[in-house]
Simulated assay, not measured.
Amino acid sequence: MIERCDPIIAEWVDREVGEHARRHGWTHKAMAETRSGIRIVIGLQDDPGAPIKATDVTLLGGIDLPVRRILDVLAEMRLLDDDRTPAVKTWFAQRAAELPAPMRDELGI
């Protein structure tokens, strides 16, 4: 999967991850895993250069890649589409589910 990442984009990713890692004192392993994760998601894109959905990045946790770090770097690179539902919205929906619709709608505002 990593090989599918365009070499020019891969070079940019390597540079950006390296700079971010140095600023934040990451280990070599953390930097390498973050680079690999970003290359994977970029390599899987149908439209290279388009923003990457955060929900797609979270799947990388299944192969033990550092999701939070990948999300942080993608956001810094302006390549992140954070399509996750904020926790407060999920919490509210659960708590308000049994309220009458007009009350739930009013509280939702």
Rank of each mutant, 00 (worst) to 15 (best):
H28V: 13
D72Q: 07
V17Q: 04
A96N: 01
A75I: 05
T85P: 05
L71F: 04
P48A: 05
H28C: 06
D82M: 12
D82E: 13
H24F: 09
A75Y: 05
A54N: 12
A97Q: 07
A87V: 13
P102T: 08
H28G: 15
F92I: 07
I42E: 10
A101S: 05
I52P: 08
D14Y: 11
D105A: 15
R15L: 09
P100L: 12
A93Y: 01
E11A: 15
A87K: 13
D47S: 11
L99G: 06
E19N: 05
T55Q: 10
V88Q: 14
E106W: 14
K29D: 10
R78T: 00
T34K: 10
T58K: 14
H20N: 08
E106Q: 07
D82Q: 07
F92P: 01
A96T: 10
I52V: 11
E3R: 12
W91C: 09
K53L: 08
H24S: 03
E76H: 13
A87Q: 13
I2W: 02
L44D: 15
D105T: 09
P48Y: 07
W26K: 03
D81Q: 06
M1K: 08
P86V: 13
A54Y: 12
F92T: 10
G108I: 00
V13G: 00
D64Y: 02
T85K: 14
P86L: 05
G18L: 03
H24P: 02
A54H: 06
R84Q: 12
R95A: 12
W12Y: 10
R84N: 06
E19Q: 10
E76A: 12
C5I: 00
L99D: 00
I9N: 03
G61N: 11
V88K: 12
E33M: 12
R68M: 09
I109K: 09
M31K: 14
W26Y: 05
G49D: 08
E16C: 07
D72R: 06
H24G: 00
D14A: 09
R104V: 08
M1P: 12
L71E: 10
L65F: 03
S36T: 11
A32Y: 05
E16Y: 02
R68A: 15
P102V: 11
P51A: 07
G108F: 03
Q45T: 02
T27H: 07
L71I: 13
D81E: 14
E3W: 11
G43Q: 03
A93F: 03
M1G: 08
I52Q: 11
M77F: 01
E98L: 07
W26H: 06
I38L: 06
E3T: 03
E16H: 04
R68F: 02
P48L: 15
R22A: 14
G18P: 03
A87N: 13
G49A: 09
R68W: 04
H28Q: 14
I70F: 12
D47L: 04
P86K: 13
T58G: 01
E19R: 15
E19L: 15
R95E: 00
I70C: 05
R23M: 01
P51G: 09
R23A: 04
A21I: 05
